[in-house]
Design a protein around this nucleic acid. Sequence first.
DNA 1: TTACATTATCTGTATGTACATATATTTGTA
DNA 2: TACAAATATATGTACATACAGATAATGTAA
Lengths: 149, 149
Amino acid sequence: MEIEKEIKQNKFKDEIHKLMINQLFTGKWITNLIAKQLKPFGLTNQQYNVLRILRGQGNNYISVNAISDRMIDKMSNVSRLIDKLVDKNLVQRKVNKDDRRQADIIINQKGLDLVRAIEETEGDLKSNFKSLSEEEAKQLNSLLDKLRG
Amino acid sequence: MEIEKEIKQNKFKDEIHKLMINQLFTGKWITNLIAKQLKPFGLTNQQYNVLRILRGQGNNYISVNAISDRMIDKMSNVSRLIDKLVDKNLVQRKVNKDDRRQADIIINQKGLDLVRAIEETEGDLKSNFKSLSEEEAKQLNSLLDKLRG
DNA sequence: TTACATTATCTGTATGTACATATATTTGTA
DNA sequence: TACAAATATATGTACATACAGATAATGTAA
C-alpha cells in the first residue's frame, strides 16, 4: 500500500520528506514482523541480533564493544542485553585474561539451538517479502546505502 | 557507506535478508537523526509525530484512534503520549459530547509555536539527505511501497 | 428494555531504551 | 614510577514501549 494511505496523509512537503516517513514506516513494519516471529521464543529483536552475531564468531569469544559495532541498533545497551542472555543460559561471559576491563562473550549450545529453531521459521517471515524481485531488492539495497551518504 | 561495512558483516544469506537488515539500519539511522533534532525541544519522535498530526487537523478536534491511524508508529501508546502533551500544555483534551467514550484532542497555540520552531531546524535535518537526487528519492519511495506489498 | 457484544480509551506491569555517570583497568608520558 | 587520560564495561535514572486487561459508553437484537 502507498505510504499516503498507510498513514492517511495525502500530501508531503517534498519527496525527501515523504521518503523519511516512508523509511521510518517501513523500518517499523519490518521490526514488528520480526518481533512477531521472535515472540514465541521469548527473545527481543536486539537479543536475537546479538545471538546471531555471537554465532557468527564460531568458537571465538568477542567483546561487548565488538558486538555493539556489529549490531543493527548500536544504541542498545549491550551490557544489559548480555545480562538477559546469560540469565536465559544462552551465552557465557568471562573476564578477558589480557585486559581485565574487557568482557568476553560466547554463545553456548542452548543458544545455538535456539537460533537454529528460530531460523526454521524464516520462511514465514520471508513470505512477507515476495513482492519484490531479486533485481528490485538489489536496487533498493543500493539506494538505501546511497541515501545514508 | 555500504551496509556490509556499517555492521561489519561481509556476507548475507540472500538479497532479501540483506534488504531487511539494511532497511532496519536505515530506519534506525533516520530515527536517531530526528531524535537529535528534537532533543533541544524536549520532545520524543512520537510526541512530535502527534503534534504534526494535530496541526494537520487545523481547528478540528480528532480522536485518539484517528491519531493512531495516522501515526508512523502505530504501536505507540497514544493515551499516554497525549498525557505528556497535555502536561506540557501543548494540546487540549476533552470528552466528546456525542460519544462520551471518545476523547477529542486539539493542538493549542503553544503547541503550534513549538512545531513551527522545530520546523525552522528542518534544514539541518535535510542536509543529511543530499546524496539522493529527486528522481532517486521517488524511485526509493516506490520501491518501499512495493516492498510492503 | 434488557442483556450481550462492541467500541474507545485508559491503566498496570514488565521490560526496553537513551543517556549520564560510575568503576575498574590499561595506556601514555613526563 | 607516578599520574592523568583513555578505554571497556556497568549502573542509575527517567522515560518509552508492548501487551494484557480494565473501565465505561454505545450499539444491537430479541
